[in-house]
Design a protein around this nucleic acid. Sequence first.
DNA 1: ATTTTTAGCTTACATGTGTACGCTGAATTT
DNA 2: AAATTCAGCGTACACATGTAAGCTAAAAAT
Lengths: 208, 208
Amino acid sequence: MSTTNKTRAEQKEQTRRTIIDAAFRLLSADQSYANLSLREVTREAGIAPTSFYRHFKDMDALGLTLVDEAGLTLRQLMRQARARIEAGGGSIVRTSVATFMEFIETNGNEFRLLLRERSGTSKAFRLAVQRELQHFVEELSDYIEAKTIANHLAAYYEADALVTLVFNAGAEALDLTKSKREQLAEKVVQQLRYVTKGSESLRHTKRS
Amino acid sequence: MSTTNKTRAEQKEQTRRTIIDAAFRLLSADQSYANLSLREVTREAGIAPTSFYRHFKDMDALGLTLVDEAGLTLRQLMRQARARIEAGGGSIVRTSVATFMEFIETNGNEFRLLLRERSGTSKAFRLAVQRELQHFVEELSDYIEAKTIANHLAAYYEADALVTLVFNAGAEALDLTKSKREQLAEKVVQQLRYVTKGSESLRHTKRS
DNA sequence: ATTTTTAGCTTACATGTGTACGCTGAATTT
DNA sequence: AAATTCAGCGTACACATGTAAGCTAAAAAT
C-alpha cells in the first residue's frame, strides 16, 4: 500500500461520478428520485446493473449523495449572491431572490430533488434536506442578529420565515413560464418585505 | 331505466368507497400515493385487481379523488375554526393555527397526500393540490380585504404568505413529537404576526 | 515473477407489476 | 318469462425490478 496508487482509484472515482451524473440527468419534472430504479441509472451510466454495488451500498446511499451535492450547489450560488451584494449591487432582498430564481432555472432538477425528498417516504432523506435548509436559516439568522437589534429567537423566526417563503416560491416557479416568473418574483419580494418590516415593527413595540 | 334503481348502484357506490378508504389507509409516513400499486389497493379493499377498473379508469383517477376528499376535509375543518372564532373564541391567528395543527395530528395521511403530490411527478396532481390551496388563499384574501384597507393585490400577497407559512409548518410538524409541536406552533404564530404587522405597516407608508 | 485484489461483466432467479380476456350469477329491463 | 346488463372474479402474459453467484482481466502488492 504505497507507490503510485493512481490509475485504479482514479478510474473508480470517475465511474462513481458517471453514476452520479447519470442519476441527475434522469431527474425531471416527470421523474423523481424516488421512482428511479437502479437499472435505469446503470443503463444511463453505461455500466452493468450489478456494478452499481461497487460504488454505493444501495439507491438510498446514492440519493443522499445527490442531496448533498444539490445542497452544495445551492449554497455556492447564494454565496455568489452575497458577494454581488457586498460589491455594491442592489437590495439584499431583490438580489437574493433573483439569484435563487436563477438557480431554479438552470438547476431545476437539483431543486426538484430537494423539494420532493423533503416530504418523501425516507426519513433519512427528509432529514438530509432539512439539514441543507437549516444552513440557510442559520446563516441568515446570524446576519439578521448582527444587522439589527433582534434577539436570537426573533432573528431565527424571521430567517426561517424568509427561507420558507423563498423556497416555496421556487417550487411554484418550476411550473411557470418565464414571464409568469417575474410576477412570482414580485410577489415573494413583497412578502419578504412584510416579514422584515413586521419583525422590525414588533421589535419596537414589545421586547419579545 | 326507471323504477327502483337502488340495490345495484348502491352496492357499486359502496365498493367505490371501500377502495377509497383502503387507499387512504395505506398512506403513511413510509408510503406515498405515488408508490402505491393498484394491486396493493385492491388487496387492502378485498377485491380482485381487475375489479378496480369497474370504478376508476386508473390509479391517477383514484388519486385525484383522494386529493379532492382530503382538500374537502381540510376546508370543513377550517370552517369550523372560523365558527369557533366568530363564537367569541380567542385570536384569529392562534385559533387557526391550532385548528390546522389538529388536522395534521388526526389526519396526517390526508395532509401527507397533499404535501407530497404538490411536488410530485404528475402535473394533474400538482394542479389539483394547487387548486385546493388556492381556495384558502382566496378566502383569506377576501377576509383581509374586508377587514383592512388593503388593496386587492396586497391582500392576496399577504394571504398567500400566511397560507404558505402555515402549510409549511404543517409539513414540519409531521416528523415531530407532540411537545416539539408546541414550539413549532409558537414559531408559526410569531411568523404570521410578522406578516400581518408588516403588511399593515407598509400600507401606511406607501400606497402600493 | 507470482500472488492478491477488485471493478466490471454475464447469467440467472424470484417477485411484483398493469391489464387483456372471458366467464358467472344476480340485478334490472323488456 | 326471457333477455340484457354489469360488478366482480380467475387465469394468463409480458415486462421490469433488485440482487445473488461466479468469472475475467488488469492493476497492485508481494
